[in-house]
Amino acid sequence: MTEGRGKRGQTVVRCVEVTKRFGSFEALRKVSVEVRAGEVVCIIGPSGGGKSTFLRTLNGLESIEEGEIHVLDVRLPAGKREIERLRREVGMVFQSFNLFLHMSVRANLTLAPTTALGLSKAEANERAKRLLTRVGIEEQIDKYPGQLSGGQQQRVAIARALAMEPKIMLFDEPTSSLDPEMVNEVLDVIRGLAESGMTMLVVTHEMGFAREVADRVLFITDGQILVDAPPAEFFGRPTDERQAAFLSKIL
């Protein structure tokens, strides 16, 4: 299944010996990894292991102390302008949605395309409608985030990121703050994106989802990628002690 997709393109993310520190604490320790266009990479591991930090270094939300990261044609660390340009091509979805609560769903989706891409109001609006249809909530376009359920809010957040037509999508535990009955509506949207060929890195605790959708699964703990394997191998034959312990706890 992993090779069956036949969609491995050129390398779009390349981390070389990346170290990230908060004060003297090393949140990432010499992390090296590559992701190719079209790949779906799921990231799992215990809380505090560095999964969010890793994801956030990829779009410059966290600076790095050592090493370098190549994302598309940008090399990090980089200046403000370069990072801004990079962020327009890398979408991110957060555990806590982070929607703009004082803006309608429509304004949430059109803010970035109009200000960062220079789209006209009408163009951005068309795009917003199309994407809301794609995530199945076109009728909510004039509501405010506070009027929506958690699952709907996260789908708005996904549509908001897609409105920039990114080449890569980063998901940081997109279903972890949802009530159980809403998890699937969000996973379905992410699954659909994967099938459309989007390059994605997804931090998740949904093992069934990872097993089904991922091309590769990374196990991150103590700021290191200890395992990088196709899902069948990852879940079938754990190679690392801590990975095995983690899996036995969570499965």
Partner: peptide, 27 residues
């Protein structure tokens, strides 16, 4: 203003002037 909303705007590549006006100052 919640830090997460500012981060979301940064992650979208919204220019800083617009982040200040629309995401921080308006609310």
């Amino acid at each position: 203003v919640p830090r997460g909303q500012i981060e979301a705007a940064l992650a979208l590549g919204v220019p800083s002037l617009h982040i200040w006006i629309r995401v921080i100052l308006q609310p």
